[in-house]
Design a protein around this nucleic acid. Sequence first.
DNA 1: GCCAACGTTGGC
DNA 2: GCCAACGTTGGC
Length: 157
Amino acid sequence: MYWVFKTEPAECSILDIQAAGPKGVVWEGVRNYQARNFLRDQVKIGDQVLIHHSSCAQVGIAGVGVILAEAYPDPSQFQPRSLYYDAKSTPEKAPWVAVQVGFVEQFSKVLSMTELRQIYGLADMQLLKKGNRLSIIPATKAEFDLVLCVAKAYSES
DNA sequence: GCCAACGTTGGC
DNA sequence: GCCAACGTTGGC
């Protein structure tokens, strides 16, 4: 499948994923049940992920990642010092999961939402829908390919 | 910092 | 299990 993962670049940017090397980064801190369900049940090894930078100066899709490891208990839920600590989590009953995300490519330019909205074929993309707050969003192959195509067009211009 | 759109909580 | 109040997300 194809996905859009939202991240705050101050936390984990496309460059951080690149810097992490072949092991990739731990995609942790998802604390929304709908997003958790996607992560736990449907995100599979080899799935490709559009990395979307949010809450920052340059909001938009910054590059591509790939799933290197499927859902396992999110370590941050057990760490009292972590922002993502969940006092109710126990090793027996751990509701939150993490995956491992590896680097594929960084776009030559962050694709903003206004730019993407202008692309014929992306009109129905969930990421672009008003009020969308999910941090793990499924995308279609057509949408994924189109976004890559737009990124490529920019890199050649 | 505004505010729309959700998600979560808790009294009943 | 309803629903109002409150909290959070996130683009702008």
